[in-house]
Design a protein around this nucleic acid. Sequence first.
DNA 1: TTCGATGTTGCATAC
DNA 2: CGTATGCAACATCGA
Length: 601
Amino acid sequence: MARVIYWFRTDLRLHDSPALQAALDLKPDVLFPTWCFDPRYVYEQRVGPNRWKFLLESMSDTSAAITKVNPKSQLFVLRGHPTTILPALLRKWKISDIVWEKDDDPYTMERDKAVEKLAKDAGVKVHVVHGHTLYDAEAIEAKTKGKPYVSYGPFVKILEGLPQPPRPIDAPSSLPNPGPTDLADLKRSEHSVDTWKKNDNNAENRDGEDKIYASFTGPDGKFSVPTMEELGMAKATGIHPGGETEALKRLEAYMKDKEAIINFEKPKTNPGAFDPAATTVLSPYLKFGALSVRTFYWRLQDVVKGTKHTQPPVSLIGQCLWREFFHYNMRVTPNWHEIRGNPICKYIDWRLDDRYDDKGEPIPRSEWKLSDEEKEAEKVLEAWTHGQTGFPWIDAIMRQLKMHGWIHHLARHSVACFLTRGHAYISWVRGKEVFERWLIDHDPAMNTGNWMWLSASAFYSQWFRVYGMAYGSNWDKSGALIREFCPELNKLPDKYIYEPWKAPVSVLKEAGVTLGQTYPRPIFDDKAAKAETQAKMKNAYHVNIHGDHEAVLNGTAAKMLKEGAAAAGDGEESESKSPSKKRKPDSKGKDGLKQPKLKMK
DNA sequence: TTCGATGTTGCATAC
DNA sequence: CGTATGCAACATCGA
Ligand SMILES: Cc1cc2nc3c(=O)[nH]c(=O)nc-3n(C[C@H](O)[C@H](O)[C@H](O)COP(=O)(O)OP(=O)(O)OC[C@H]3O[C@@H](n4cnc5c(N)ncnc54)[C@H](O)[C@@H]3O)c2cc1C
C-alpha cells in the first residue's frame, strides 16, 4: 500500500504535471503534497521581495487548488532544509514512495541527489520525473555526448531529431487524502539552518525580523504558506501576481490575438512597452512551473499550424527553444555560474571580478582591497543597480526591474551590455547577482546563460556591437518607459528625453530638471567609456583564453591580459598586418598541470 | 584543413 | 517612414 510524498518545487500547478501524475499512478493510500522551505533561498540566494511574494502567491494558489479537489488536503509547508526535513517526514509519516520533478541547476542537483540517497537508505522508493522543460536533458545528452552547444541552430537540429514533446495532460480530478500529520517531536537542533544563515545575502531585502524558522509548521501549526511578515521581507512593489490561476488566465488572454502569435518576431518587439508589454510576460510562471511549458508550446503549435508563420529563433516557439538551449547548456557546463573553471566562458579581465586564494577558494568580498579603479567601478555598479547612472534609458529599465521584477528581453540586453562589454567593463557575475535579486522570473540557466551572452563571454562574440543610450528610441521617440520610471524627467521634450545632458540649460529649466540634483549627471562620458571598454574587449579577445585555462585557475590570467595589451601597444605590428588570421588559444593547462581546487562535473 | 556563410536583437548615414 | 551600406570585426559550423 503506497504512502506517498509529492514534493512540490518549481512545479506549482496541477495541470500537466507528469511528476504529480506519476505519484497518482502509484495509486496512493495517502498522498502528502509537501513543500520544504529551503534556507538556501531564504539566505544565500539573492531573492528580493517581489519574487518572494510571487512564490508565496504561487504556493497559496496551488494549495487552494489542491483543497478544491480534496477538501481534506492542502500544500503541507515545512520550514527547514529538505535534506533533514524530508527524511524525518519519511519516517514519521511512514512513507513508501517520494516523487518529485527533476531539476537541473547545480545546487538542486546536488541537494536532490542527497535527498535521494537518504530516502533510499531509509528504504523509500524515489521517483524523479522529467517535466520542467520540453525535452529531457538526458535524452538530449544521449545525442550530444554531453558537449555544450554554443550555437542555437545546431542545437535545435538535435531537438528536431528527438520525439516531439508530448501534449499536456489534464489536472487530476481527484487527489487521495493525506494521512495524519503529527510532527510534535521535531527539534530545531536536528534541523538547524544556522550554517545557511551565516551566509545571508538578503538582509537588505528585509525590514523586519526573519522568523521563518521559528516553527516547522507555521505560526498556526497548520503547515500554512508563509507570509512576507514571517520572512521579515520588505513590501513588494510588483504588478505581476503569482499562481497557476493567473498563469492560465494570462495564457488565455495572450492566445486571443492569433495574428500577434503568427507574426511574432522577438527582435522587433518594443522593449519600452510596459502597459501592456510587447511579449507574453509568462516567464515567471514558467520559472515556478505555474504554467507548464508543454501547455504553452502546444497552444502555440495549434495556433500557427497551417499558417505562414515566423520561425525559430525569432518566433514564440523559438523562445521556448531558447529556454531549452540554456537549460541544456547549464546541465553540461561545469562551473556554469562562475568564470573560473568554466570552459565555455571567455576570460575577460573585468573590473570587480571574483578573487580566489591560492587554494582556489573564493575570497569574501568584504576582505578585498580595492584599487582606485575598482572603487570607481563599485560606484558605477551601485548607480547601475539602483537606476542612478544619469542615462535615462538605463535608469528607467533598472528601476522597472527593481519595482516590478520583469523587464523586456531587449531591455535586459541594454543594461547588461552597458555594465559589461559596452561601457562599464564590470564582471557579468555582478550583474547576474543583481538580476538574481530583483527578477521575478530569475532562473539559473537563463540568467547566467544570457549574462554570458551579453558580456560576449560565451555564445556571442560580436563584442563590437554595442547598444546606445537611445536604443529605446528605435521604437519610441517619446520615451514612455523613461517618463514612467524616471518621472523627474517627465517634462522634458522628446528630443532630450534619452539624453538630457545634451539639452540646453533653458530646456532643462523649463522641464524642472537640474542635472546633479533632480536627476544625476551621466556617471561617465559614454563615448569615452565605450572606447576604453572596447579596447579592453579587443585585447581580451586577442589573448583568447577561457575559464578552464591554467592561467585562470592559478590566478595569473589578469596579468596575462595586461601583458597582451602591453605587447600590442608596443607597436608589435605582426598581428595587425594579417588581421584575418585567427589566433588559436593557448591551450596550455586544459588538462592541467597542478590545478587548484575546482569543482568538476 | 580551409574558407565562406551565418549569427534572435548596433549605429550612423544615405537615399 | 522604410531599407541599404559602411563601419570594424568575432567564433562557429559545415561544405
Ligand atoms: C541578461 C539577461 C538575463 C536574463 N535572465 C532571465 C531569467 O533569469 N529568467 C528568464 O526566464 N529569462 C531570462 N532572460 C531571458 C529573457 O529576457 C526572458 O525570458 C524574457 O524577456 C521573458 O519575457 P517573456 O515571458 O515576455 O518572453 P517571451 O518573448 O514571451 O518568450 C516566451 C518564453 O520563452 C522563454 N525565453 C524567451 N527568451 C528567452 C531567452 N533569451 N533565453 C531563455 N528563455 C527565453 C521564456 O521562458 C519566456 O517566458 C534573460 C535575458 C537576459 C538578456
